[in-house]
Write a protein that binds this DNA or RNA. Sequence first.
DNA 1: TTGTAAGCGTTATCAG
DNA 2: CTGATAACGCTTACAA
Lengths: 379, 379
Amino acid sequence: MSDGEASRRPTVYDVAEAAQVSIASVSFAFRRPDKLSDGTRQRVLDAARRLGYAPSAAARGLARGRTGTLGLHAFDLLLERADPLSETRPLVGLQSPRLDTDSVIEWGETDDDVLADPRAFPLYVDEVQRGFELECWSLGRPVMLSSGSSSDVSVADTAGRVDGLAIFPSPQTAPTLARYAPTIPIVLFSVAPADDPHHRVRVDNARGMSDLVDHLVDAHGVDDVAFVGRPEASDTVERFAGLVAASEARGIRSRLDPVDATVRGDDELVPQLRAMIAEGRMPRALVCATDQHAFATMDALAAEGLRVPDDVIVTGFDGTLAARLTDPPLTTVRQPMEAMGRAAARILAGTAGAAPADGRPFDVVFAPRLVVRATCGCR
Amino acid sequence: MSDGEASRRPTVYDVAEAAQVSIASVSFAFRRPDKLSDGTRQRVLDAARRLGYAPSAAARGLARGRTGTLGLHAFDLLLERADPLSETRPLVGLQSPRLDTDSVIEWGETDDDVLADPRAFPLYVDEVQRGFELECWSLGRPVMLSSGSSSDVSVADTAGRVDGLAIFPSPQTAPTLARYAPTIPIVLFSVAPADDPHHRVRVDNARGMSDLVDHLVDAHGVDDVAFVGRPEASDTVERFAGLVAASEARGIRSRLDPVDATVRGDDELVPQLRAMIAEGRMPRALVCATDQHAFATMDALAAEGLRVPDDVIVTGFDGTLAARLTDPPLTTVRQPMEAMGRAAARILAGTAGAAPADGRPFDVVFAPRLVVRATCGCR
DNA sequence: TTGTAAGCGTTATCAG
DNA sequence: CTGATAACGCTTACAA
């Protein structure tokens, strides 16, 4: 416990010396207890405990060639969340109260009031991440979380730390990833199939849109819809296409030009909606690409004095927790996020069963589910 | 890309050979770009890119003596959450839909309906964890997440993988931890101060209880309270003591025997409450140890036909998201969870400023905040 | 500016 | 059953 002495992490050598055995025996005591006599094993274990020995994962990883951990990497997305206010309201160091003091840190120094916004957490990715974590833990594997911008350095870093990597991709992700394909197994969330070696876990967006349109038409007599969101990520593209296809199938009108509401910079949303109102182009229903888009849309509509659902119907996609908390509560299409996260973990851990035909990657598709609340006009 | 060939992860040696340089140059190309001529560096980087080279974190960790990652470990708690239904309703393999098929996985196979319960996620720990993650990412450090039972093997394992470890302790954690103290810095969440070398991040429970009691007395004329929860974790102990002290200070009656509702097995709660009703011992307010306890209490009260807040006032502690979703919404005391997670990360990363006097560990205490909703009788 | 070589702490293969 | 000893892939003096 004295200062200069104990600071170095004890190694097999230290334990071996303390227990009067070879380093091999120390290793065996932990990894192959059966190959050691009871006495020796006990001696080693005691010494280890006494010294506070924790095997170095780095060394083990090196020797074994595998780290034992599974990784989850998120591009952009999470980083943006890390600073949800950067554009809206710059934080003047609020998020970093001084810690090197003896006094209690007052509430006002913590930002909690702004940061605890349910629209910011938990998001779609958070619920998927949770499923991933839970599955990993039940498999006894630690999880490595990382996040980074589109620059690939952080993925490479993470790729070097794990035995398999699940990824929430950004639209530009593909090229970066191709590189690590042969190296470790990779699971992509919510990316349309393509001719690459990555596994996929995704949701049937077309079906979700179809179910949604059916409800709008059958229950509310909707005959005119518009899509809110920019079709750039493959998820969003599929949803837009799905809406158009479903509208066509039901013989209702749908706009071919989506209302382009980027979630982050939704400042353009109000002008766009205002123009639609002025020009009499406002449809009966605004079908949003994600719940986040729906929140922004509802805010914008409120700013224009339009009531939901009386004047305009609004729907979301994802089924996040925050969708239950809007006023009125949001009708949306929910993805089975925890199950998706678990699926990714099982694929990477090799507990997902036999891979599909002839070594092709997994492409696991989940059915989404329509969650009817109040913004469509129900109740 | 051919199968047998590319499966091994490329190493410095492979890159060195491909780029016609020494392994040292490969390393320098990434770590000390300035020490290399532009030409060589470019050649190395190209080769690395071509081969899909990702430096092995294990090897780097070994060579450098630090892994660069920060860890977060949860005892019990999270494992229990991993299987929230194990006692209530055994899952017959539902949580593991077959993945090795070509067909879409239907909703009914995913468990989502039960697993998406906001009372199960996000919990207190999840919000703290998120703060930890966000801070780590903004510091450019990956996060290692692990979970385990009280058996110490998993902590030891995690301790060997990280440069610093934050821990949600279980009541029996202390002895296990003492061992790793000299090895890596450790932050304990929500643990009362003691004479050990660990850092602490916690909330001022006494103040939270005091604020709560003040409100109950001043706004609702409450003169009689009881505590629901088992005072075993130091957090709960402090809250119970805080309630008793605050009641005394305000001159109101408080029971010295807490209603013992374990969150997991809350089956005893109904009988206990029933007995209190029968014997006329039901107080005006039930002050619960955590939000989770409050949920269980509200359920139990409803089962007995008692109305909240008219017949009994109920309050929680933590301020989780789920507390906004009860009917009526729960009055509770919120902890600044994200800020707490961030604080832990900064302490471990060494960006928390100078440690307190003479090398003693950090003991960061946050002020909680009373969140008044409807279960206390407001509105 | 580039190359050589010595660790880093395990695991695993052989001998004894 | 136990002990030497050679990898494992990288970083980093130190040489060239």
